[in-house]
Computed example of a mutant assay.
Amino acid sequence: MSLKYDLHSHSTVSDGTLTPAQLVHLAADAGVNVLALTDHDNVSGIGQARMAARERDISIVPGVEISVSWNGHTVHVLGLNIDPDAPILCAGLERLCDYRQWRAREIGRRLAKKGIEGAYEGACEEATGALVGRLHFARFLVQRGHARDVKEVFRKFLVSGNPGYVSGEWASLEEALGWIGDAGGMAVIAHPARYNMTRGKLRRLIGEFRELGGRGLEVVSGSHSKDEYFTMARHASDFGLLASAGSDFHGPENPWINLGQLPDLPPGCEPVWNHF
């Protein structure tokens, strides 16, 4: 019997709505055999996930989703099978977390200038973990009636040219891959079809990533269409990269794809999990 892998998920440590333990139990109930916890720029939930996994028939892959600035784009790079206590990785993530806290306060300030008071405090209430992210602002703004749903919040408030937008100042691609490598992990570009890049620019990103030691591409993602699965599989093959699969699950309220429902990788892909 083949195992079910989900190598991209989030908990309340970043912008998910389930604790690491709750996430693990839900994944096990959904038939997932191997789950990677990949919170944004934070690894503090991995210990809780491992403890919960001991109670269930599920394996935890320690991971992280690192925010990267590349040629005017914010790109996310997964570090899979990392040592979450690696000093260089932890120092780098601490820097990003400090920036995230400043950005959250700045988003709140900019929204207040547009007449939306209390957004920062509201986002903090939504965030049960240490980090306050854009998704927490989005949930607050939906609750206050400023938008119908989270997607509309991002479109009206949190992307370039809108009141709550703050440009990211994240790790460089070289820094992120260095941190992951130092932690003994494998670097994977997360949801590559989401970056709104031309085909040529995406291939430049993938090529640079590969030259810096990147190992994989998230071919099957909860935010990819079926056609994009096959497009990303071709890119992975062209650049000699391994293929990964992850739901990018944030909680039952707003799943890209529910846990346990990822399709198989397209034919010809070499799975990243074969090389852990």
Rank of each mutant, 00 (worst) to 15 (best):
L3G: 01
S9N: 14
S9P: 09
S9F: 08
S9W: 10
T12P: 00
D15C: 05
D15K: 01
V24S: 00
D29P: 04
G31P: 07
V32L: 13
V34Y: 08
T38M: 00
Q48N: 08
S59L: 10
E65W: 00
S67W: 13
S67Q: 08
N71H: 15
G72Y: 09
H73Y: 15
H73D: 13
G79T: 05
D83V: 13
P84C: 04
P84R: 03
P84M: 04
P87R: 03
E94L: 13
L96R: 10
L96E: 12
L96K: 04
Y99C: 00
W102E: 15
K113D: 13
K114C: 08
G115C: 13
A119W: 06
A123Y: 02
G133S: 05
L141I: 07
G145N: 03
V150A: 02
F157L: 03
S160L: 01
G161I: 00
G161S: 07
P163A: 05
A171H: 02
E175L: 05
A176Q: 05
A176V: 13
I180P: 12
I180C: 11
G181M: 04
G185A: 10
G185I: 03
H191S: 04
N196E: 15
T198H: 06
L202W: 01
G207Y: 03
F209N: 01
R210Y: 07
R210N: 01
L212T: 01
G214H: 05
G216P: 03
E218H: 03
S221V: 02
E228T: 06
Y229F: 15
F230Y: 12
F230I: 05
F230L: 15
H235L: 12
L241R: 06
L242C: 12
S247P: 11
S247M: 02
D248I: 08
P252I: 07
E253W: 07
P255D: 04
L259G: 03
G260Q: 03
Q261W: 03
D264K: 14
P266N: 03
P267Y: 02
E270I: 13
E270S: 14
P271T: 06
N274C: 14
